[in-house]
Design a binder for these strands. Structure first.
Lengths: 204, 204, 204, 204
DNA sequence: TATGAATGAGCATTCATTCAT
DNA sequence: CATGAATGAATGCTCATTCAT
């Protein structure tokens, strides 16, 4: 009965643009994650979305634009996860790190494979020209900022080049989240170990 | 019959094969580094090597095999660099780390771009089936072994899951070498900072 | 039922159709001239006309019909120019030719590119089947008629096959107007030279 | 028997490049003539030539290049016809014109449709950039040169702008050859009429 | 062992046309 | 009458791989 009522609202094959775009986004994410950039054809995305392949080009200039949009969406989503978690922390570096890790693992758990796919190296997509700064570099800079502020507050050793250390932290997190999960580590183990590792590395 | 006689008469041009293979390897490395996996065609490699297109397939089953061979070669080369450097160290973790970093940066300097190219994600090459374990994972395991031994010797905190920490170390090193150079950091700065970072993280 | 009542109540927006058609014609001409048949999409025409894509098909069966209509319009327009000019002439062949040339050049000047575009070869539009006689052939026949009458009146050499000569005259005019303008000849030069050329060729 | 001997020489499916190119040229000409530029796909040309469609791109950069090559070949072929015929003439303008017409009609008879197809307007192929000067313009210039020389020799009225007249002559010839044949005129009629027409137009 | 002409499945993209609104 | 999102057949072209020489 419920489904019946629902059906009436949803069944309409729709002719509304936003709906198509949403379908495409969902389909694109699914396929980019499952198969990677090169093994995913615009046609596959459209078909997965239940649309004709011409429709794909109503929403994206080309395949690359679709991928870039997928990456940006993932970035923003993760950002939200991290912001929400970190807001709860008491501001100490340890808690901040722990909460950030939690946020990343939360995201990875609820969006498996997305971060990995979104970090596909720029060289891999034909690029040709510009492309926004790769995700990893942006995130490395964010960490550098965090470390700088913590160092100024005396929470982090002052003899570090924060830019280098920002990258190091990001690398440690990325690599452990990527691989840790792959080999089935338990989440709390990952968080505990990595937090401990980073806190010890950073404390004054 | 004729062809048989001919074959016997002809002084078989002997094994000039290794020479061709060496040329192909050099050419493949150059192009994989410069253009990446997808933008490099077997034909390009053969031509760069000064050989006919067909010759490529005398030495490799397919493009993927050629790439995998390039990766393996790079891995072994780097291994040699690291082994040589680490052999000089006094065995303390700090020195081991510092020498390893030095080895990596040495290699990166003398073989620019090679590590980056060799780490191209498995998902990117068509894969289809198995594929050897990616470089990063293998290296992460090597680090895990190192840390395990150091922990057993009491040089490293004993409350770590070495597998996780191995990945963390690798991640920190990889990310800093990758990005550090890109932004023109000075090598000694990188080594000092990263060594300090890792040593502090690990010491008991 | 509801829709029925509604229909009856609504003051049918009346015939605003002609307005749309006029806009489409103007837009089609502009684009066929600027870009040619193949590079002009029905969508472009509609958009240039400030109308939705679908509206195009309210007025034309397909793209080909639109182009053919453009050609016919141009033909009629030119016809008017020629008729008006020739009406002023004193009926001698020389004056008739000169006035016709003047008419064509007038039209070309005030409608630059239109004749060229309208003469796009039939083979170029997908054709598939029939297609109206190409412009050039129709005009060639018109000239043949003119020459026949003039020959009967003794104004033109009687040893010509008027059909062939009609084509020759048309060809000379077409080619000179096409190319003459392109290379920036002065109009009076063109008219003088071509008139002289034709008059000498035709006189008994 | 003869064909048997021949077969031995010819049957070889060949792996020689020039043979493929020749096949492609023949096929391209056939299809460009029969269907026009737009209705002919590279794939069709290859198939008509009995080759895979990849082979097409071994010989031409793209479809446009193939068409341009077809045009150039036709131009050179016609040139040969004209040169051969004109060489026989006694140098008077009348004979030169008559022989040129003969050459063109010869060519048109033995290569039906080729000239029409080769004169496909530049605007029709995507062009985008340069493209060699269209055939008609080149030929118009050739005629201008002829007329200039004849005028200097006193064989042609001196009050003409030779550039305009060159175009006029070309136009007359082109249009009559194009249309004349289409409506089944007899060749000698065409030649006689057009020669007479041009000679009268030009004589001093 | 070496060659490179030949291949055709496959890809990204376009565009004339339809139809639900 | 008008709209424009949706469609999918069709296109030009690439490239990993084969095989006759």
């Amino acid at each position: 009965m419920d489904s019946d009522t629902l059906a009436k609202t949803e069944t309409r094959p729709a002719r509304r643009k936003p709906e198509s775009l949403a379908k495409l986004k969902k389909a694109a994410r699914k396929l980019f994650v499952e198969r990677g950039y090169h093994a995913t054809r615009p046609q596959d995305i459209a078909r997965e979305a239940g649309l004709g392949h011409g429709t794909f080009y109503l929403h994206y200039d080309d395949k690359r634009a679709c991928f870039l949009s997928f990456v940006e969406d993932a970035r923003l989503e993760l950002q939200d996860y991290v912001d929400a978690r970190v807001a709860r922390s008491d501001g100490t570096l340890e808690r901040t790190i722990a909460e950030t890790l939690n946020a990343i693992y939360d995201y990875s758990e609820t969006h498996p494979g997305v971060l990995g796919a979104a970090m596909t190296d720029e060289a891999v997509i034909d690029a040709e020209g510009v492309q926004a700064t790769p995700l990893l570099v942006r995130w490395g800079r964010d960490w550098a900022d965090q470390v700088r502020r913590a160092a100024e507050a005396g929470d982090v050793a002052s003899d570090y080049d924060v830019n280098i250390i920002g990258q190091a932290i990001l690398g440690a997190i990325h690599q452990t989240s990527d691989e840790g999960y792959r080999s089935g580590r338990k989440r709390q183990d990952l968080i505990d170990n990595v937090t401990r590792f980073l806190v010890r590395a950073l404390r004054p």
